[in-house]
Design a protein around this nucleic acid. Structure first.
Lengths: 210, 210, 210, 210
DNA sequence: GATGAATGAGGATTCATTCAT
DNA sequence: TATGAATGAATCCTCATTCAT
């Protein structure tokens, strides 16, 4: 069941080639032929040999990208405490991925879009799971009075969509300041989630010292 | 130059079939063959007969969807005055499209995503133009003190992405309350744009009478 | 059996459009669609209505070109007497057609080439008939001592091919002097046909030293 | 870069099939489907697998024919010395190709004609280059007094066209004596190029009365 | 294990022709 | 007489996948 060393190496090689092709040429154009050529393989047969099918390869590509994203984002999020700080960290670190791993991100965006919604959605499922968990966190924060009384699901969805949009923009326009955009987007949602009573009495914002 | 009656009818028929196929099967799967079958046409040649090529058909599909969207959104936006009310109307009416024209919206989302970024993006261009204009409006509102001092571009991008995400979610999950989601999303950004000095003085909230 | 007036007019109109399309776009690209558009007709059905098929239209095109060619060449040839003068007139007038009727000639060349040799060869037959007759003329001239003792068929074939080649060149290169080329080609064959006894003297073979 | 053995074999096989199909059915009818069937291949996809496109296959066909032609003609031409002997060798060896390699020649003629003048004429270019060089040779010979003072370009064009015409005729009519026709054609142009001073004496020009 | 050859379905598009008005 | 709508075969080409070696 375990993979041979060369087998793993080959798979990795192909996955990387796929990531680059998808990032460069777009998901629709990412045929086995292109990927094979990019990977320096002489035939597409190689890819079919190592991957059960296109879905399989795609799954691996997504897994790789998610691995990279998680490795970047998780520590940054967990370094913070409290829902608002963590939301901010989530948004910022996610946007910053565009600078840290542009190829992977570009490929991810392409896949997200090109996949056709029906696709087994192995990724969509993962994404949905994350969002469901986030929704739960939001509700908890609301119960604790740290967030206002808005619709948690809409917030989570909006955050996700906004991040994606900013990511796309940042990936496309090299003149955009990634870090600044990340901060701005985090600020934006920070303003959106704070309880509005915030300014009804003399009290401190989260993170403020007494 | 003018189109025959049946010609126009056929074109409309094909465009509608295309919209449905794209909405159902996804952009990638929307081949002439599928569209022709869905439209009850005997051959794909018919489509080529009425449309110069796939681009042409696609253009028409997008134009149709934009027409529908504009007809729905514009009056609702123009009925309001002031940047915040209009932003709210923009967001709400856009999300509500998911209930008013679900097929068209679904198709639009598919096209937006599946098109591959390379295509000159005849639509992407339109969308970008709108966003540029919105950016300008935001800056004006900021100069007038109606909006806080955030990055206009990031806001506009975030709004666009958030709407799209909510649209997708609402389209997929029939249990979602479209109107409520629309309102919630509008609220969210309304909170995000208001000047924070709001609570620095003895004041009324926007919309309050003196 | 006789054609109506409008019928003839329509046919002529279509034939002329066909000539221009073939001359401009080449035989291979000369579809009914192009011809119809060039003729200002709204559908290709018109062409099928007036012509039994593509062959029929083609036949008419060829006939028209031949009519034009004959009208130009025949008087010029018949104005001369004697085989050499007539051969010269034949060659010169044929080449000059490139200046007098460039569209028709260009179309003819295209058809000659593009038709595929199998084609019913309605034209090839006519051309062959002319050449057979010319062959006969040559033999007569040879019997009369006006031409040398060469192979008549080869001469006739060579003349035909040479004219065609010069025609093509002249049609393509607007800088070529048509009249001069015509004269030169006629001279060339005039030298080739004259009896060699003309210079009956102690002479060396090619390559021999003096 | 280097081709596999079977790859080369397949390519050759396909090229040969293409040559035969073109020779038999004509250039216009030489579709991938026909060629595949003739080559015993199961699908046209095979051809696309081995050739980048129709142009690519065509290029190979032309290259093959030119290789064959060159291999036959060049030694025969270079065996001679002096412009007239070489011109004769050029003409004779070219015509004789019809007997030596009838299929290839037939295909070549078809391609030459059917290609549509638009195609950059990768072959037409080669042919033009040869003719330009020949023109240069002719002028040199004229300067040396070995040829008469005719228009070099017209001569070269005429030679080319005459050869082609004789080739076509010889290919079509199996009763024609190829070698004799070749000799006759060479003789014809030999007479046409010799300096008229050959017979420099007090005597009448063609057309003059005694 | 690894490879390149082969497959056949499916892609868009163009074409000449037919047919009901 | 005229038209334009419809047809369906044929065009080249790309694709993911299979298979024998």
């Amino acid at each position: 069941m375990g993979r041979t060393f060369t087998e793993s190496a080959r798979r990795r090689q192909i996955v990387e080639a796929a990531i680059e092709v998808i990032a460069d040429a777009g998901y629709a154009k990412a045929s086995f032929a292109r990927i094979a050529k990019h990977a320096g393989l002489s035939s597409t047969g190689m890819i079919s040999y190592y991957f059960k099918g296109k879905d399989d390869l795609l799954r691996e590509v997504i897994a790789e990208v998610m691995r990279v994203s998680e490795a970047y984002m998780l520590p940054r999020i967990e370094a913070e405490t409290g829902p608002r700080a963590r939301l901010r960290a989530y948004i910022e670190s996610n946007v910053e991925l565009a600078a840290a791993h542009p190829r992977e991100l570009a490929a991810l965006v392409e896949i997200l879009n090109g996949q056709g919604d029906d696709a087994e959605g192995q990724f969509a499922a993962a994404r949905q799971a994350v969002m469901d968990f986030q929704e739960h966190l939001v509700r908890t924060a609301q119960a604790d009075g740290e967030y206002g009384p808005f619709d948690a699901r809409v917030l989570v969805t909006a955050v996700r969509g906004a991040i994606d949009a900013v990511l796309v923009r940042v990936l496309r326009d090299p003149q955009m300041d990634v870090a600044a955009s990340a901060r701005e987007l985090a600020d934006l949602f920070d303003r959106a989630v704070r309880p509005s009573e915030v300014c009804m009495q003399p009290h401190r914002l989260p993170g403020e010292d007494a």
